[in-house]
């Protein structure tokens, strides 16, 4: 499989993401500057975390208008896979590739800590290496991760099985104390209708090496590598 990694000015997680992709897929991802529009031959396009364009106006609002986003929209429309993490998730919502928005954290604090995520379904290209309801640890580092959508949208996401991950306590139970940023229905990540676009706030790519404290995030990348192996 071939993965591409989109570089916007102001992002800072692209190298972590490149390492995670390389470890699982065996190939270094192609780096794509945000003004480029050539995504030919790519199975997966990844939008990494950071602070694109300094978070001016709203997180991800400027990046959503970049030339590369038109190409990513076309890639998604023809069934291509897209992964957006943290700022990448914010960009995907600003570009309307995923519904809802990421608000300022409910307690206003920038959150830099580990959280626990529950895998809501394990039959997608992103989660097949987990079991349903598995819980894994993931670092998070964001000021605007409070997922918001109106009730109809939230009902639709849940009804269509499009909630990817929820913030939970270590034992997998829902607990308001585990939902530190105040996200609606404890949602940490969501899928597009065809389950091929995934956005999430925490950083599984930062926990793929025992030297850094664990491999809890590695199943995400192993799942992708396996699903797109053809």
């Amino acid at each position: 499989m071939r993965a591409g990694l989109v570089i916007f000015p102001g992002i800072n997680r692209e190298r972590d993401m490149a390492i995670a992709l390389q470890r699982s897929t065996g190939h270094a991802p192609r780096m794509i500057w945000h003004r480029d529009t050539d995504l030919d031959g790519l199975d997966l396009v990844v939008l990494p975390g950071g602070f694109s364009h300094g978070d001016y106006l709203r997180c991800g609002a400027m990046a959503a208008q970049s030339p590369v986003m038109g190409a990513i929209r076309a890639h998604a429309a023809r069934g291509g896979y897209v992964l957006g993490v943290c700022n990448g998730f914010q960009i995907l919502t600003e570009a309307h590739l995923l519904p809802g928005a990421l608000l300022r954290n409910a307690a206003l604090r920038f959150l830099s800590m580990d959280c626990h995520l529950r895998v809501e379904r394990a039959d997608t290209a992103f989660t097949a290496r987990w079991q349903p309801n598995d819980v894994f640890r993931a670092p998070m580092a964001h000021g605007d991760g409070n997922y918001f959508a109106d009730d109809d949208t939230l009902d639709r996401l849940e009804g269509e099985g499009r909630v990817a991950f929820r913030y939970v306590a270590q034992d997998g139970t829902l607990d308001p104390r585990a939902n530190r940023n105040g996200s609606a229905r404890a949602i940490a990540g969501i899928y597009s209708e065809n389950l091929r676009v995934l956005g999430l706030m925490p950083h599984p790519e930062d926990l793929v090496d025992p030297l850094l404290g664990g491999e809890d995030g590695k199943p995400l990348f192993d799942s992708i590598a396996n699903a797109l192996a053809a």
Partner: peptide, 8 residues
Amino acid sequence: RLLANTVI
């Protein structure tokens, strides 16, 4: 189209 995110 840009200045406001009409979702929120």
